[in-house]
Amino acid sequence: MSGINKVMLVGHIGKNPNLRYLEDHVAVTSFELVTAETVVKNGIKSEHFEWHHVVMWRTMAEQAALKLKKGRLVCVEGRLQTRSFEDKAGVKKHITEIVAQHFRVLGKDRDTQKGQNRPDNLA
């Protein structure tokens, strides 16, 4: 039986994307994307922030590095992927990330989150 692995996120970029090149000059860009959800509990309204790790490959990675910057509103479509690795101390870690297949910048440069309610590290 086959399934569907599809993710669509609209959020703000937490810090400038990191572009690097692997063997054979394969480009990879990664960044954190924050989404916000308004929650009402016992009549009290609050925002819940969720951070997502996004990875882009090859030509899209290079385009993203040119077009995306901290605070920009972006729509990312892709798939979930979980992988394991060992950190510098030899401890095995797991990470779930969004492997982007498409992205679109939303709004204009001036539409970054200036003056809006947001996580402190997005300021």
Score class of each variant (00 low, 15 high):
Glu23Leu: 12
Ala100Val: 08
Glu62Pro: 11
Leu73Gln: 14
Thr59Leu: 03
Lys88Asn: 08
Lys93Met: 02
Glu50Leu: 10
Val74Asp: 07
Glu77Lys: 07
Lys108Glu: 09
Lys6His: 10
Val76His: 06
Gln113Phe: 01
Gly3Pro: 06
Thr38Ser: 15
Gln81Asp: 04
Phe85Met: 04
Asn5Gly: 05
Leu22Tyr: 13
Gly3Ala: 00
Leu19Cys: 11
Glu37Lys: 10
Ser84Phe: 03
Arg118Cys: 09
Trp51Arg: 10
Leu33Lys: 08
Thr59Arg: 08
Met56Phe: 01
Lys92Thr: 09
His53Arg: 13
Ser46Asp: 10
Asp109Cys: 04
Leu66Asn: 13
Gly71Pro: 11
Thr96Asp: 02
Ala65His: 14
His102Arg: 07
Ile44Thr: 09
Ile95His: 00
Ala100Lys: 03
Asp24Glu: 15
Gly115Ala: 08
Asp109Tyr: 09
Gln116Phe: 08
Val34Gly: 12
Lys15Met: 03
Ala89Phe: 04
Met56Pro: 02
Lys41Leu: 08
Ala27Glu: 13
Phe103Ile: 05
Ile44Gln: 14
Trp57Asn: 07
Ile44Arg: 10
Lys69Val: 10
Asp111Lys: 01
Met60His: 08
Val10Trp: 06
Asp24Ala: 15
Glu37Cys: 11
Lys92Asp: 00
Lys88Pro: 02
Leu33Tyr: 13
Met8Cys: 09
Ile4Gly: 04
Val76Phe: 05
Val28Gln: 14
Phe103Leu: 08
Ala65Glu: 15
Arg110Tyr: 12
Gln63Pro: 06
Asn5Cys: 02
Glu50Phe: 09
Val10Ser: 09
Glu86Lys: 01
Lys88Trp: 00
Lys114Val: 12
Asn117Met: 08
Met1Asp: 04
His48Glu: 13
Ala64Tyr: 05
Arg118Gly: 06
Ala123Pro: 00
Ala61Leu: 04
Gly11Asn: 00
Gln101Ser: 07
Thr112Gly: 09
Glu32Lys: 13
Gln63Gly: 14
Ala65Gly: 13
His102Ser: 06
Lys88Ser: 08
Asp120Ala: 12
Glu32Leu: 12
Val105Tyr: 08
Glu50Cys: 12
Val7Ala: 10
Lys70Val: 11
Met60Asp: 05
Arg83Ser: 01
Lys93His: 03
Ser46Val: 13
Thr112Asn: 05
Arg104Trp: 03
Gly90Cys: 03
Val34His: 07
Gly115Lys: 07
Arg72Leu: 15
